[in-house]
Amino acid sequence: MQLPDLEAWAIFARVAELGSFAAAAEALGITQPTVSKAIARLERRMGTPLLHRTSRRMSLTAAGEAAVERATRLLAEGEAVEAAITAQAVSPRGHVRMAAPMSFGVAHLAPLLPTFMSRFPDVTLELALSDETVDLVGGGFDLAVRIGNLDDSSLIARRLCGVRILLVGAPAYFERMGRPKHPRELATHRGLTYAYAKPGAAWRFHHPRQGDYSVGVPSVLRANNAEALTPALLAGMGLALQPEFLVWRELRRGALEVALPGWQPPEIAVHVVMPPGRGRPARVQALIDHLARRLAQAPWAAEA
C-alpha cells in the first residue's frame, strides 16, 4: 500500500487558501519550484488536474474543489500536532513511571514528589517500589533509581549523589561484644546482612595508611530489605554495613555508633537509569533534574 503524500496535500491546501504558488511558497518557507513539483506530483498520482492555471489567475478544478476541504484539515491537524509537542517541550506534561528501591523510595524519594507536582501540575507520576531490579523496557518504565555500583548495560545512567556505607552497631552491642579495632576482628562478631548482596561476600574496608582489608563475617540475620535490619541493630543483635541514608538519624541521636573509625567501606552512589535509544521527554528530564537538585542537598549525601 502506498502512503499518502501528506506533504504535497498540505502544500496544495496552502496554495488553495492563498491563491498562488508564490504566496504559498513564502508562507511555508519553501521555494516556488518545490510548490510546483508537489502539485504536479499530486496531479500525476490522482490522474487529474487539481488546479486551472493561466498567466493571470489560478482556480480549483472540480477534483480540486472535492479535495480542498480534507487537505485543509490535514494541514490543520499537522500544525496542531506540532504545536502540542512544542508546548509540551516548553511546559512538561504527561505521565512518568519510575521504579525505586523500597526503603529509599519511601523515606527519600516520596517526600520530594509534592514540590515537583506543585511545580509541574500537568505531569502525573507513578512510583513502583521494590528492592528487586526491574526490567525498564519490559515494565514500561521511563526511569529507575538504583543504588550501588551499576552493572555494564545499555541503559543510560546519570549519577545523582554519592552514598557512604557505614559499619554500625548499637552501644549495647559494643558493651556486650567489645568494639573492634581492626577489620580482622570482625570474624568473631555477629553480622546482619542484606540478602541482595552476594551470599558469603566479604566485608571490604580501606584505610588511608593501612590499605585494604576484606573479612568474612558470620551472619545471624539476612533480609532482602536493608531497613528490616534496623530493629535488630537497635536491639544490639549485631553489626551491619548500612547506607548512611538509612541510619543517619539514629547516628545523630546516638542510638547507633560507627565502628572502626578510619576504616571506610567502598562508597556507592544513587543513579537514575533510563531505557536506551529513546528521546527523553521534557517531563522525564524535569523529574530527573528535580531529584538531582534535592538529593544533593540531603544531609547524608556525599558528592555527586
Rank of each mutant, 00 (worst) to 15 (best):
R253P: 03
E250I: 01
L256G: 07
W203Y: 05
L251V: 09
V247I: 12
F245I: 02
Q242I: 14
P231I: 04
R249W: 04
F205R: 05
A228V: 06
A226H: 12
L234Q: 07
R184T: 11
A226R: 15
F205M: 08
Y213P: 01
A201V: 05
A226F: 01
L256S: 03
P218M: 07
A226L: 11
L186E: 01
Q210E: 13
V217R: 00
A223K: 14
P208A: 01
T230S: 11
A255N: 03
E250N: 05
Y194N: 01
L256N: 02
A201K: 04
E257H: 09
K198D: 01
G191E: 00
P231A: 00
G216K: 11
A226P: 03
A232V: 09
G211L: 10
G211M: 10
R204E: 15
A235Y: 04
R190N: 03
R222G: 15
L229C: 14
T188M: 04
R190D: 13
R253E: 15
G238P: 14
K198H: 10
R222M: 06
E185L: 02
L239E: 06
G238Q: 13
R252A: 15
A228F: 11
T188H: 08
R249G: 06
V215E: 08
N224S: 12
T193Y: 00
Q242N: 06
G191W: 00
A240G: 12
A223M: 11
Q210F: 07
D212P: 00
L246G: 10
V220Y: 04
A201G: 07
P243S: 11
A240L: 06
R252S: 14
A240I: 08
V217G: 00
R209L: 12
L246Q: 14
H206K: 09
G254I: 10
H207E: 05
A240W: 05
N225R: 15
A202Q: 09
Q210G: 02
W203A: 08
R204G: 02
